[in-house]
Each structure stands twice: as structure tokens, then as C-alpha cells.
Amino acid sequence: MLNLTKNLPIIINKLTTPQSQKLLKFTSNIHSTAGNRQNDQNLKTSVVPQKSKIINPLKHEDFFQINELVKLEDLFKARCHYGHHHGLRCPWMNEFIFGTRITTDIIDLDQTIPLMKRALNFIAHIAFRKGVILFITRYAQHIPLIEQSALEVGEYSHCKPWRNGTFTDSTRRFGSVIRLPDLCIFFHTHEKLNEAHGALSETAKMLIPTVAICDSDSDPSQITYPIPANDDSLVSQQLYTRLIKEVIIKAKKKRQELEEQGYVIQYE
């Protein structure tokens, strides 16, 4: 047996075992025949990859060229530096605040930029790995924009009242086992006035990473990738949705292109 496997290419061995035959039958119910043919090709390429065609996206400094996307001027023009009245400030946001002008907190955009780049990079990597991304907000004015953006990039949105247990008790809520989102993006961290969104604690419990726009009154301590910036203006939200959309589309396109060129993506 050992000798046999040594001499023959692995692919032949795989397809002739009874177990693999069973699996082939199983999957043929789901995929179309054309898809099967394509998958066969993928299988061959995946089994014997050429060394020059292996890519590890995590090894690159800026795999999706995000540095070019985020500009200070854009953020400033989109009024991202406006915070809330200083009395509403969350103490965890102190380090991101530049100063207070006429009782209004001003957010330090110099700190926002690297954090935003980091968050966008993370979003791009999740999209690249075909993760499920969920857009969340409860700010009535932004809901149509957020929902539309999610639909445009083929992702998901939840802008309706949060029902406790949507993530933590999903099997009962949805009536079957479901795949939970791999990343939640909060465009506004409050559900009601000064009350944290119910999804925040549930993402933490289910180990779902989060990206959130944190205004001066929101708590960034529960969030994996906080972006300190104004979350109330529609203009600012338009900027965030534009950037995130761009990044997701870029990542998905890149994945497709690499696969077409026969590259193999490996993480170590």
C-alpha cells in the first residue's frame, strides 16, 4: 500500500477510493455538471501546486492598496472630526479627542487614519476569504443607505430592531443551524439614545470580530477594530460606505483574478 501511494500521483488515489466516490455522488446533487467539471480542474491544481504560484496575502504589507484610499482631506470635508457635546463623552474615547471647541469635542483625524486603514484592511481580508459580512446600524436616517450598500456588494445588513439571541440562540431563532457572519460592521454603535447596540455583546460572545465607527459618545472597548469618527452625519456615512464598498469589491475581484490565473492562496 505504501509503495503504491508513493508511485502513483495522489489525485488518482483520491478518486478511486470508495470514500471519495461516495463524496462525489453526494456533491453532484448540489453542484451542476458544469460546476463539477470546473471543480475537477480546481482539485487538480490544488493538489499539485507550483511553488511560484503560491500566495500568502497575510505576508504582504498592503495587499489591497488601502493606503491610497484613505485621505485626510476627504475625512475633513465629510465632517468626520465632529464629535458630540463634551458632557456626553465616553472616557475610553479620551485618547482620540483632539480638543473641545465651543463645548463640542473634536476628534483627532491623525489618529483616525491609521485605525481606519487597519480596519479596512481587515474587512478586505475577510471579503477575500469569502467571509460573511454584516452591516449594522439603527440610525433611522442612514438605514436606506446602509442596506443599499450591503446589497450592492453582495453582503448582508441588519438595520431592524435587534432581537436578543439572534447570534447566541440562532438555531432556535432561525429554525435550523445557520452560518453566522464572520464580521460585523457597526455604522452606529447605539441602538437607542446612549444605549449600546444589542449585537455588540452578542458578537463578543460568539467571537465574531467587529469594526465600528466610534463617535465621542460610544464605547470602543468592546470593539475589535474601532474607528474614531463622526457617526451621525449622512455625509460621513456616505464616505464610510463608499470606502468599505470599494474595499470589498476590490478584495472579491482580486480573489477572482488570482483564481483565474491559477494562483493558490495559502495561509500558514
Binding site: L23, F26, T27, I30, L43, S46, R129, V264, I265, Q266
Partner: peptide, 12 residues
């Protein structure tokens, strides 16, 4: 999700 591990049985 990676191509290297991508076998059809695992797609489900």
C-alpha cells in the same frame, strides 16, 4: 476556504 484545502466535500 483556501484553495489548497478546497475539496468538494468540504464545500458544504
Amino acid at each position: 476556504d483556501d484553495k489548497s484545502n478546497n475539496e468538494r466535500a468540504e464545500n458544504i
